[in-house]
């Protein structure tokens, strides 16, 4: 069924999105994570915050989950905001989850944690992940490379690397140095 034929409200009720431009509200952390479902039990808020690797920094805040964060998430770092947006998107537990460059400002260790969380989500869920970093996309079932609105490459991480095309080039660019350094010292 074409998305145009669906009622926008009904369509959106099936999609969870964390956008590139994180917009949070002047509310408690709990209220922000439970934005899509205000009746969400506190335990669940915490569960999703843990999945989004946000629990640790939230716990350290003066009032934990009840800390009021400023409008647009002022007072939080770029990576912290992104993780709250991620928790918010996961908390609605919808069949489709879209992550639009949601981990660009998150360090790599945290990102690895988030990726394993995404695989552990309870409900079956289609994940569409938009990213510039190969580390973000590597574990995906399928990777699409878009250029000017067209798919120019498609496949798994391994397949795309074997193709030695655009994806491979980016991979080499982003890994430049690591291989060399690790090899030299390892």
């Amino acid at each position: 069924m074409g998305v145009r034929e669906l009622d926008p409200g009904e369509l959106r009720a099936n999609v969870g999105i964390a956008t590139q431009d994180v917009l949070l509200f002047s509310d408690t952390i709990d209220g922000n994570v439970a934005f899509g479902d205000p009746e969400l039990p506190e335990d669940d808020t915490m569960k999703y915050a843990k999945l989004a690797a946000a629990h640790d920094f939230i716990r350290k805040m003066p009032e934990g989950y009840d800390t009021i964060i400023g409008e647009r998430g002022v007072g939080l770092s770029g990576g912290q905001k992104q993780r709250l947006a991620l928790a918010r998107a996961m908390a609605v537990a919808r069949p489709i989850l879209i992550l639009d460059d949601t981990t660009s400002a998150v360090d790599l260790e945290t990102e690895a944690h988030i990726q394993s969380s995404l695989n552990r989500l309870e409900a079956p869920c289609t994940k569409i992940i938009i990213a510039q970093r190969i580390s973000t996309t590597a574990k995906a079932d399928r990777i699409l490379i878009l250029d000017a609105g067209r798919v120019i490459e498609e496949g798994t991480h391994a397949e795309l690397l074997a193709r030695r095309g655009y994806y491979y080039e980016v991979f080499m660019l982003q890994n430049e140095g690591i291989e060399r350094q690790v090899a030299a010292n390892g």
């Binding site: 260790e109 590597a138 991480h157």
Partner: peptide
């Protein structure tokens, strides 16, 4: 070292 070896990815070919 730990942070950046996390970025290192296997070349699965």
């Amino acid at each position: 070292y730990k942070l950046y070896t996390a970025q290192k990815m296997e070349m699965v070919v």
